[in-house]
Design a protein around this nucleic acid. Sequence first.
RNA 1: GCCCGGAUGGCGGAAUUGGUAGACGCGCUGGUCUCAAACACCAGUGGCAGCAAUGCCGUGCCGGUUCGAUCCCGGCUCCGGGCACCA
Length: 905
Amino acid sequence: MISAKVFLISHPISANHSGIMKEYNFSEIEKKWQDYWEKNRTFRTHDDFSNPNKYYILDMFPYPSGAGLHVGHPEGYTATDIVARYKRMKGFNVLHPMGWDAFGLPAEQYAIQTGTHPAVTTNKNCDTFRRQIKALGLSYDWDREINTTDPAYFKWTQWIFIKLYNTWYDHNTNRGRDINELPVPLDVIKAGDEARKKYIDSKRLAYYDDAQIWYCPSCRIVCANEEVLTDGSHEKCGNRVVRRNLKQWMLRIPYYAERLLNGLEQLDWPEGIKEMQRNWIGRSTGAEVDFQVDGSGEIITVYTTRPDTLFGATYMVLSPENPLVGNLTNPEQAGAVEEYVRAASLKSDLDRTDLAREKTGVFTGSYAINPVNNKKIPIWVADYVLMGYGTGAIMAVPAHDERDFEFAKKFGIEIVCILSPAVNDMEQKRRIISGDECWSGDGIYINSSDSKRGITLDGLNVEEGIATITRWIENRNIGIYRVNYKLRDWLFSRQRYWGEPFPVIHWEDGSISLLDEKDLPLTLPELEIYEPGANGESPLSNATDWLYVTDNEGRRGKRETNTMPQWAGSCWYYLRFIDPKNEEKIFDPEKERYWMPVDLYIGGAEHAVLHLLYARFWHKVLFDLGIVSTDEPFMKLFNQGMILAFAYETATGAKVSSDQVTEKDGKYYIADTGEEVRQIVAKMSKSLKNVINPDDVVRNYGADTLRLFEMFLGPLEATKPWDEKGIKGPHNFLSRTYRLIANGENITGGEEDPEILKALHKTIRKVTEDIEGLRFNTAISAMMIFLNTALKKEKIARETASSYIKLLSPFAPHLAEELWELTGHEGTIAYEPWPLADERYLREEVFECPVSVNGKMRFKIELPVDLPVEEVKEIVLADERAKKWIGDASPKVIVVPNRIVNIVV
RNA sequence: GCCCGGAUGGCGGAAUUGGUAGACGCGCUGGUCUCAAACACCAGUGGCAGCAAUGCCGUGCCGGUUCGAUCCCGGCUCCGGGCACCA
């Protein structure tokens, strides 16, 4: 011992065995290879149609915010990059592009405050994002970079808008068609040109109309239904939205509801996302039923999913906005109804989504006739019925609908139970039948027959009842089977400067025309003031030079001053990546046929409904018009989970900025006051000051470590907390890898140790399977296990090292390139063939068979693989350790071949 | 309220979907190196009892099916996400 110490002291450098050891200098390595890739354009994608194996892998492109990247971005980008690099090594022609969804409010807000043109801000932000992304070593083909704010790009966004305008939906063939092919009914033609134009406009997928829409006074912008949260606030700014009537561009997405719904089935998407889209589309089936109004010629048509409960309909409700309200209100009730309707319109402005939601309503004084039994039922007005869904009127069945029940109870309206419920609880059954409790489940009809009208439901169950009554209604011509959707027209304009201008002119005679394709793009004018008007005018209304136009005949017109919402650019960007520089066409159809559809699309779940539904809608329209070759754009979708970060709050729940907190003995305190705070995990946000910037991580540990760490954190889809303490693990793994392989002395030329060989092939198999399944955390763990095995041996054959470097290369590409070079290879590793697992090395002859007694593992015994069951039993029962548990009993033995033996005593 | 997820050591998470629970990593403990520390390296590490061999307990809770349950079934609790007067 003593002499050894003396020896070591006298040779301090050799303290780390094997002489001079090169250290893992990640900054140098990463810089070197990023320069190499850039210089050699290593990841440029060629439209090589001769390779039938193409793989289009796409990230949801980011909005380049001023704050730059946070560590959530690299998570998805690293995942796609691993797959892209892996697929290249598998011989696929890979399309893996990146671009910027760069229209948006923040740049415009900044322009309002500072007068800086949004394009300037945007370009600066794009530069930052590009620099940060390049520092991560992501293998994008930068020659295909696109930017939605580039006129060369939004020219085609405008072009698609013109296509939407010139398309109608043929419900017979269920596809969109050119507006010139729209058959116009004879009576419309007879009614003249004006009527004909009106008819055609009523069929276009894009239309301009007065609509009651949500308006955010704080942002001075209209919002799509989807952008308004349940509590009536604007999802962007959190302020209250109000109802307004404004002329706006709308898209008739509901025409595609059925196709958008059915199309989901063929898609390899997370079930949850598909379910959210289904819910959003909100298909329901039922019937429209006509009710005569007593003593008047009026008819109220209602939509109901439960026509089978007609016998239980004891009143009707009109939405306050329903145009029939005026006609159906009798003079005695007029005051009360007017007051209610007025209050409701105010309420919809201020408090439409009142949480208390006590049912309110007022009687019109009129009655309707229930067609199944001729009974007179009162007609009410109540705001729990919405004008925008169904027909804006309902038949109310309080016995079998919770909302109607609540309303009827409050206003003392009759409750007639017509369905004996399928419940065992006799007391509950009694309550339901007597109308003291509501029942919306299945059961057997009672009181639901009328011999005069030839309708009998009694004795049937709900399913049979719905079918029977629907037939009866249709035969009697008082209604019709109907499919309904929650999905509404999509409000497609915003009162903003920084968006795509509509290629639209409004003429003084009230007509609208769209620009010619050859006049695209219509670019934005230069402005001094970016602020929108207080009444919802877009800032573009100030651009007088740009705004006014005169045609050849001297007719004067005004350009559309609204711009498109941010969704427009992201609705089709994946198509432009295919042929991003094409000036003649949106893209070359041959290239489109080769590259589409997107094989794998990765992004955050926050776009589950909006972006993904809109993009699918546009895609289907383009498909119907023969512009794209596939019906769906994104075959496989995967959502990466959010990365959360630690944040701190006081005992009262007040949030404390992370930079003010210090840790001591596992507890957290505010540095200045010493007050103890609690550590929580929360979304990264500026206000909590818990945003992690990837630049810092790259500087301290390197991009390869960051990539590995983000992937090692847990399953890609999981929400995970960012805890930088753990980053040492992946970093160590990389430096240990470097130490093993960069050290020439460890690399041998000859035969490989059988144990390492076996470990290698197991690793190849595991890593390959895990990349295919997007399970990067376990792939990394498999490589760590391999490294541990190899390090124990301190020697590794060159061939083995090469295979291992290849496995590592999609995850830690810089280090892999460096090691590839150090082990004597030339050029990039990016296109080297992916290693194959050789079954020969994977086959086992013996295995450690666990033996359990009564289901509890007791000991292990080495057994040959595939030993016949009887022999296994014999060997196991003969074992001393087994005898200890069995004693004198004669046990039952269950043998699961090559897996486990269970002795039952 | 409804619809989707989820709950496993001190922590992030594994587990071939009915067959050895806790891989891998962090952290922690001990050791080597160091004047010392950091780094690195080696060993250990679910809890309880025991010097130990070993035994008992253990995958949010209660119950069930099974030779055997983290996994399947029934009933809850809590957490995350989405939707919400959609007739």
